Lab assay of single mutants.
Amino acid sequence: RIEKCYFCSGPIYPGHGMMFVRNDCKVFRFCKSKCHKNFKKKRNPRKVRWTKAFRKAAGKELTV
């Protein structure tokens, strides 16, 4: 099963990425440490230029 990165919305293939479980049992999956570090710094994915959330908000990503 291919999961989605919580921060950048990129695909996470089986055996890859990192799973972060908070004390309230909420699960966050990250494709790379870059995404996990930005999440820990409480960065907003919509303001980080390389994420899909930014591209969609800025009108750069074509949605079908």
Score class of each variant (00 low, 15 high):
R1L: 14
R1D: 12
R1T: 13
R1S: 13
R1C: 13
I2E: 12
I2V: 09
I2L: 06
I2Q: 09
I2R: 01
I2T: 05
C5Y: 00
Y6N: 02
Y6V: 05
Y6H: 11
Y6F: 08
F7T: 13
F7N: 13
F7A: 10
F7E: 15
F7S: 11
F7C: 06
F7V: 12
C8F: 02
S9P: 06
Y13E: 14
Y13G: 12
Y13D: 14
Y13A: 11
Y13M: 12
Y13N: 12
Y13K: 05
P14A: 02
P14T: 04
P14S: 04
P14H: 03
P14D: 08
P14L: 03
P14F: 03
P14M: 03
G15P: 06
G15W: 01
G15S: 04
G15A: 03
H16C: 10
H16K: 07
H16P: 09
H16N: 13
H16D: 09
H16M: 11
H16G: 10
H16Q: 11
H16Y: 09
G17L: 02
G17N: 06
G17D: 08
G17P: 06
G17E: 11
G17Y: 02
G17T: 05
G17S: 07
G17H: 03
M18Q: 11
M18D: 12
M18A: 08
M18T: 08
M18F: 11
M18W: 05
M18N: 04
M18K: 02
M19T: 12
M19I: 12
M19V: 10
F20D: 10
F20T: 12
F20R: 01
F20Q: 05
F20P: 01
F20M: 10
F20S: 07
V21I: 09
V21L: 06
V21D: 03
V21N: 02
V21M: 05
V21W: 04
V21F: 04
V21H: 00
V21A: 04
R22W: 07
R22F: 11
R22L: 08
R22I: 10
R22D: 15
N23T: 07
N23K: 02
N23H: 05
N23R: 04
N23D: 13
N23S: 09
D24M: 00
D24I: 00
D24Q: 00
D24V: 00
D24R: 00
D24C: 02
D24N: 02
C25S: 12
C25Q: 10
K26A: 10
K26W: 01
K26S: 12
K26Y: 04
K26L: 03
K26I: 03
V27L: 04
V27H: 02
V27A: 04
V27Q: 08
V27S: 04
F28K: 02
F28R: 02
F28I: 07
F28Y: 09
F28G: 03
F28P: 01
F28A: 05
R29L: 08
R29H: 09
R29C: 06
R29N: 09
R29A: 10
F30I: 04
F30P: 00
F30C: 04
F30T: 01
F30R: 00
F30A: 04
F30Y: 02
F30Q: 03
C31R: 00
C31K: 00
C31N: 00
C31G: 00
C31H: 00
C31V: 00
K32R: 06
K32H: 06
K32W: 01
K32L: 01
K32D: 15
S33Q: 10
S33D: 13
S33C: 01
S33L: 05
S33A: 09
S33T: 08
S33G: 05
S33V: 05
S33K: 05
K34T: 12
K34W: 03
K34E: 14
K34M: 06
K34V: 10
K34P: 01
K34R: 03
C35S: 00
C35I: 00
C35W: 00
C35F: 01
C35K: 00
C35G: 00
C35A: 00
C35T: 00
H36A: 10
H36M: 12
H36C: 09
H36S: 06
H36R: 02
H36Q: 12
K37Q: 12
K37W: 04
K37N: 11
K37G: 05
K37I: 09
N38T: 04
N38Y: 04
N38M: 09
N38P: 01
F39M: 02
F39L: 02
F39I: 01
F39S: 04
F39V: 02
F39D: 04
F39N: 03
K40P: 01
K40D: 13
K40F: 12
K40N: 08
K40A: 11
K40V: 10
K40H: 08
K40I: 05
K40Y: 11
K40W: 10
K41G: 06
K41E: 14
K41C: 05
K41M: 07
K41W: 03
K42E: 15
K42S: 12
K42P: 02
K42V: 06
R43C: 13
R43K: 12
R43M: 14
R43G: 14
R43V: 11
R43I: 11
R43H: 14
N44F: 01
N44R: 02
N44L: 04
N44E: 15
N44I: 07
P45K: 06
P45W: 04
P45M: 06
P45R: 02
P45V: 04
P45D: 11
P45S: 08
R46Y: 09
R46E: 15
K47Y: 10
K47T: 10
K47D: 15
K47C: 09
K47E: 15
K47V: 12
K47M: 12
V48E: 13
V48Q: 09
V48D: 14
V48I: 08
V48G: 07
R49I: 14
R49M: 14
R49D: 15
R49P: 13
R49K: 13
W50Y: 11
W50A: 09
W50R: 05
W50M: 09
W50H: 11
W50N: 11
W50P: 10
W50F: 12
T51P: 09
T51G: 07
T51I: 04
T51L: 05
K52S: 10
K52V: 13
K52L: 10
K52F: 09
K52A: 10
A53F: 03
A53H: 05
A53R: 01
A53L: 07
A53K: 03
A53M: 06
A53Q: 10
A53W: 05
F54E: 15
F54K: 10
F54V: 12
F54W: 05
F54T: 14
F54Y: 09
F54G: 12
F54A: 14
R55C: 14
R55T: 15
R55K: 12
R55P: 15
R55F: 13
R55W: 13
R55D: 15
R55A: 15
R55H: 15
K56M: 06
K56D: 15
K56G: 14
K56E: 15
K56A: 13
K56P: 15
K56C: 15
K56R: 04
K56V: 13
A57H: 13
A57D: 13
A57T: 08
A57G: 10
A57R: 02
A58Q: 07
A58K: 07
A58S: 10
A58V: 06
A58I: 03
A58P: 07
A58G: 08
G59Q: 11
G59C: 12
G59Y: 09
G59F: 08
G59L: 08
G59H: 09
G59D: 14
G59I: 06
G59E: 14
G59A: 10
K60Q: 14
K60R: 10
K60W: 11
K60F: 13
K60H: 09
K60V: 13
E61Q: 02
E61K: 00
E61V: 06
E61W: 06
E61C: 03
E61D: 10
E61R: 00
L62D: 14
L62F: 07
L62Y: 03
T63A: 08
T63I: 03
T63K: 05
T63R: 02
T63N: 10
T63H: 09
T63Y: 07
T63G: 12
T63F: 04
V64D: 03
V64A: 09
V64I: 08
V64K: 05
